[in-house]
C-alpha cells in the first residue's frame, strides 16, 4: 500500500514541529511537490526502455 503524499506531509510537519524544527515546514512542502512529481514520473514510465526492475 502506498503512503499518500498529503498524509506523509502532514505527519512529517507534525514530527518536525514536535522536534522543535518548524523551519523545516517549507522545505518539507517543497519535498512533497518533488515526491509527487517523482511518483508521476514513475507511473508514466512503466514498461519504458531500459527498465530492468522487476515488478
Amino acid at each position: 500500500m502506498t503512503t499518500r503524499v498529503e498524509d506523509w506531509l502532514a505527519a512529517a510537519i507534525a514530527d518536525a514541529e514536535r522536534r522543535g524544527m518548524p523551519e523545516l515546514k517549507p522545505l518539507l512542502e517543497a519535498l512533497a511537490r518533488s515526491t509527487a512529481a517523482l511518483r508521476a514520473a514513475d507511473d508514466a514510465t512503466r514498461s519504458a526502455p531500459g527498465d530492468t526492475h522487476e515488478r
Binding site: L38, D42, T45, A48
Partner: peptide, 11 residues
C-alpha cells in the same frame, strides 16, 4: 522509485 528511474535515466 528514484532508484528505478535512475536506471531509466542511465539507459
Amino acid at each position: 522509485r528514484a532508484m528505478r528511474l535512475r536506471t531509466l535515466l542511465t539507459a
